[in-house]
Design a binder for these strands. Structure first.
Lengths: 224, 224, 224, 224
DNA sequence: CATGAATGAGAGTTCATTCAT
DNA sequence: GATGAATGAACTCTCATTCAT
């Protein structure tokens, strides 16, 4: 006897299709939001503008996102996912051999730090978005749990570096210091670069990053 | 024949007094704006709020500032002046003797970098303002010339460090690199600190800055 | 020749079943609407909220009701039915004997008036609904015929009192007057009570109603 | 020495004129609001509609009223003032002689009750407004103090009746009862009349009120 | 110089209703 | 029959800016 409706039990092809469609439209709106954001900046991102770009009326957006802050959150989440993808790919295929080669590890450290840097260098709007999360502009609407989740994804993007530092024999405390310092340095350089103020000093961003990583390499434990 | 109005040609005592009065009121409004800004943050700064704090009505502000962006610009200018004052004081009284003592110079370098850092650490609203100029938040109202002037004042605040590096025997190119790197690093740490994200890494901002300056000291030319 | 569809001509068992089902669902929605209304008040009753409570989506409601006003109308109808049930029960079992006992009749009068009053006292949301029909809040959606039908049911709820007054020997004209006056009085007290303004006078609603009915009893024809 | 600005100390003719102008405009907006309200009912009263009727843009209203609820409050206040004026006039010139004539006092009681009733009978929109205060529609935005003030003014309008009842020798408790009952009765009749439901009973509102007051007169203490 | 009324655009959000699927 | 996307109009309220007085 089948008293329960099939529709509620089975993930029918139809449901799947509908779900996929809805997801696609959600993404479409997100893209529109991103486009508006990239074109006019954060201040200009209004529901009406997003809707217009997406080919909707303002009210329609609310079928997909409960609020404007919801859109921001989705945008941020998406951005951090892409950051992590990018960083992951940079160290993909690296040997996780028992016999660790210091030189290789240093290269991995360098690669993953560079991947992090390059992601934001090449996607300046993600940097803007990151600042929205990261602040200056406080994410008032971001719930505590979401905020934590986003923080975690940001830290995740630094994880390969953490692994490398560990392999290289840094102490726990040293790892924390170097990791934070590297993160801060990259952020600082990105900010300088993004705002064009780096020209003020006549230096290139890539050059600065490499300089920093060179110095970091020199600080590696010698007893290996 | 005196077709031209006297008022426009002569800097009469009366004109002077009026000018002084106007300047004072301008400053008064600026102080009000700063107060509102410090109390509630950038988003809450509206002409009405500034006016209220200053004891005026919104319309009155326009006698002294052409637009809201104008006020921001003045606020930035003021902020950068105070930054420079702060940095100047930190190295004040330092010997500009011919006979340079390396140790003293290193100390000066450190002091002036710390002064820069501490100014923003202790005046987070100035940091916010700085980001307004500095960040993706486009300074639409900032004319090119003003923008350059502000840039210059920012660089000025790094000047004592530049002097010290020169004294210590760095090459022109090295100076540029280290100066920019230091600037970027400080900015990055400030950002991390200001947004509270530094907790994510369990590190203190002061600790990071000192760590960086320690490393910098180690890189100083050895042949002195 | 049977050009007309069977479905429209024949009341087939199938049609009956379908009709019953539809009625049940209609009632289900009505219950949901009532629940929302009782929980949050008239202002909060939106189609979405009703639908949610009923386990539907907003659009589905329109299969059963043509508009929101339609739902209100049904709610009112239902409310008046319950009012009449309540009043009927209060006088149920009363002797409809030829030999009328004045005391019993007075008691019946009192009982039915109290039943009317108590129904709304104990079901304040029905009072709200009643005001929606009854008050300045224009029942735009109420068609003339429906409005008349509702009026009739309201009068019906006063009928037992009318009967009693007749039994007690009031003239037609007196009956009309006393009936209307009692109705008005009850409504006034209910309104005062419901809005809490009765506290303004430091009196209880029950006390007032009883006082009124006491006075009414004193006015009864003495020559019986 | 007059250091203080005259403008701030003196109520100059100019200030007076401006104040008067502002008051007039405030009243103008209030009238517009009332007009919209009378034309289309409470639900249709939107800031835009009020503004349109007043010849303003929506935002302009906010120079005179802080919120929509503010307008309601002003409307209600005004309405209650007019009610009190009306009631006051009805008993104006009445002897406040020591030697109280019972007949005269009864007449005063009747007059003031009628004045109350007639005010709302003749100004049905004030009745609607009163219900807004009085409820059904809850005055969510009305601050507690304002709510109390409005309540007080409502009670004030019943005060002449209270005085009369006292003069006639009713006890404190009886006065409370009769006053509340009269109030409730009037409200009930007004409601019936206003909504046209009184036709349902084939009675006139005036007739009902007079009937009630007749009965009240019969209840007056006999020992006078 | 300062006021304060006024504008006009725009913000986010909600809602009853419609309709293709 | 039911869904859920979509509309379009409506809502209150805020803001920078202007301008007659």
């Amino acid at each position: 006897m089948y008293n329960l409706s099939m529709e509620q039990l089975v993930i029918s092809p139809r449901n799947l299709r509908q779900q996929a469609l809805a997801d696609a439209k959600r993404q479409h709106i997100l893209n529109a939001a991103k486009a508006v954001f990239m074109e006019f900046g954060l201040d200009a991102v209004s529901m009406r503008e997003i809707a217009k770009k997406a080919g909707y009326t303002a009210g329609a957006i609310y079928s997909y996102f409960a609020s404007k802050e919801d859109i921001y959150a989705a945008l941020l989440t998406d951005s951090l996912e892409r950051l992590n993808d990018c960083v992951s790919q940079s160290t993909q295929g690296s040997s996780i051999d028992q016999k660790v080669d210091a030189k290789k590890t240093i290269l991995e450290l360098r690669k993953s730090a560079l991947a992090f840097y390059q992601f934001y260098r090449d996607n300046p709007r993600d940097l803007d978005l990151g600042f929205y999360l990261f602040q200056g502009l406080k994410p008032r609407g971001l719930s505590g749990t979401l905020d934590q989740a986003l923080n975690k994804r940001l830290r995740d993007a630094m994880h390969p570096q953490e692994i490398a530092l560990k392999k290289l024999g840094f102490s726990k405390k040293e790892i924390d210091t170097e990791l934070t310092a590297t993160f801060a340095h990259i952020v600082g350089v990105l900010l300088l670069n993004h705002t064009g103020r780096i020209r003020m000093f006549g230096k290139g961003a890539d050059e600065l990053i490499n300089h920093y990583l060179d110095q970091l390499a020199l600080r590696l434990p010698k007893n290996k």
